[in-house]
């Protein structure tokens, strides 16, 4: 089976995030100089421009903000897997991640906006990064 598109490196903003997935950790940044939660990862604060921030571990619990179910994808990794849900999930720590909602029978009817979900890792190979996915909590 064709691999999904993988994150590519060197890419210093997002490298720590992806390195942490090798240990099944979902991490995010908070600004040291204002209350902002920074995500996707960047070396600066998107609210105040501070260059001081801290990485934190997420508990991996959140809510589906919105989703779409792809019926037609030309990409070889996705074209034969049947309908799949692409979603934004709002984590309880205050950041929004793009992801897939998985482990449902019928994505159109079994996923609801506002539904609680929890982290589920999709391995991409031994010693490689893992993709953070979400499933009904």
């Amino acid at each position: 089976m064709t691999m999904r598109p993988q994150p590519r490196f060197p890419e210093p903003d997002t490298q720590p995030f992806w390195d942490a997935t090798k240990e099944k950790k979902l991490i995010y940044q908070t600004c040291d100089d204002c209350p902002e939660v920074i995500f996707y990862p960047r070396a600066h604060c998107t609210k105040c421009g501070s260059l001081n921030n801290t990485w934190n571990d997420s508990k991996g619990l959140g809510t589906v903000y919105t989703f779409s179910v792809v019926m037609q994808s030309r990409h070889p990794a996705f074209k034969d897997i049947g309908p799949y849900a692409v979603a934004y999930v709002d984590l309880d720590e205050g950041f929004r991640i793009m992801t897939n909602v998985i482990n449902v029978d019928d994505p159109v009817n079994d996923i609801k906006i506002g539904m609680r979900v929890k982290l589920a890792w999709l391995d991409q190979g031994e010693g490689e990064i893992a993709l953070p996915m979400f499933e009904p909590a």
Binding site: Q6, D13, T14, S73
Partner: peptide, 11 residues
């Protein structure tokens, strides 16, 4: 950073 946080989920 944009691609790295979006490409893998088949949007």
């Amino acid at each position: 950073p944009f691609n790295n946080m979006e490409d893998s989920w088949g949007m």
